[in-house]
Design a protein around this nucleic acid. Sequence first.
DNA 1: CATCTGACGACCG
DNA 2: GCGGTCGCCAGAT
Length: 113
Amino acid sequence: MSWDPVYRLIKKIPRGRVTTYGELAKALRLPGGARAVGYAMAATPKGRGIPWHRVIGAGGRVRVPEPHASMQRRLLETEGVELDGGAIDMQRFGWSPARKKPRAQKRKRARSR
DNA sequence: CATCTGACGACCG
DNA sequence: GCGGTCGCCAGAT
């Protein structure tokens, strides 16, 4: 898979900070494709120096199966991230992924669900 | 080529 | 606040 850009972005996450699948997806030009990012995470080879535990779900909530959830929370706490009752304060620990191709224009789409 | 599934996200009741 | 549904993208069958 060509998830290199995803992994690379994740590696850039500063210690003590976290980001969400949605943010990553947006940064990778995959709006709504947060699932794809999640899929990439699932396929993320551990032991490659990829801080996968710094990637969380929207709202600062951990969207991970139990096995990894515990470890992830522990790792985050170790890095100084406060998991306030399981939810992380994105306003303080949320990290904005820098895009590789900054696009000044911000397209706004109307959703008529 | 048709369908299902999944470490997601937003909306609705 | 919780659970269910729909929409999104990519990979597997």
